[in-house]
C-alpha cells in the first residue's frame, strides 16, 4: 500500500464564484472601493475649500453634474451595504454576557441600528439639511 495523496487545486482568482455566500463576502469587501473613493473626494473638497470661495463652489457644481450624482448614488448604496454588513456581525465580535446568559444578537444589532439612526438624524439636523 503506497500513499499518494492527491491535492486538488483551488482557483486563486475565481474561488468566490463557487458559492453565493462567497459572493456576498466579496460584495461586502468591495464596498471599500466606494468608501475609499468618497474619502478621496472629501480630501479634494477640503483642498477646494482651502483655495477660496470660487474653487469650492466650482467643486460643488461638479458634484451636481450627472456624473457626480451617479457617483454619489453608487457610493450611498455601497455605504448602506457596508453599514448593514458591519452592524449585522457585531454580536459575533462583541458578545455581551449578563449573568449567565448572553444578550440576544438581535438586541445588539438593533442597538447599533438605533444608534445609527440617531447619529444620522443628528448629523443631518446639525448640518441644516432639514
Amino acid at each position: 500500500m503506497s500513499r499518494k495523496p492527491y491535492v486538488r487545486e483551488v482557483s486563486k482568482t475565481r474561488w468566490f464564484l463557487r458559492q453565493p455566500r462567497y459572493m456576498r463576502y466579496m460584495m461586502r469587501e468591495v464596498t471599500c472601493l466606494s468608501i475609499g473613493a468618497y474619502a478621496l473626494v472629501l480630501v479634494l473638497g477640503i483642498k477646494r475649500l482651502s483655495e477660496g470661495r470660487a474653487a469650492y463652489e466650482g467643486f460643488l457644481q461638479a458634484l451636481a453634474s450627472p456624473g457626480g450624482i451617479l457617483f454619489h448614488l453608487v457610493v450611498l448604496a455601497f455605504a448602506l451595504y457596508h453599514t448593514a454588513s458591519w452592524f449585522n456581525v457585531t454580536p459575533k465580535a462583541m458578545p455581551v454576557q449578563i449573568g449567565e446568559s448572553f444578550v440576544s444578537g438581535g438586541v445588539i444589532v438593533g442597538a447599533h441600528y438605533g444608534a445609527w439612526i440617531v447619529i444620522s438624524l443628528a448629523v443631518l439636523l446639525l448640518a441644516g439639511a432639514f
Binding site: 468618497y38 451636481a64 448614488l73 450611498l76 455605504a79 453599514t83 444620522s120 439639511a129
Partner: peptide
C-alpha cells in the same frame, strides 16, 4: 469600519442634497 458605518451614509446624503 465602525466610524464609516455610522456616519458615511449621512455624509453622502448631505452631498446628494447639495447636488440636487
Amino acid at each position: 469600519g465602525t466610524v464609516t458605518a455610522f456616519i458615511m451614509p449621512a455624509l453622502v446624503l448631505l452631498v446628494l442634497l447639495a447636488a440636487f
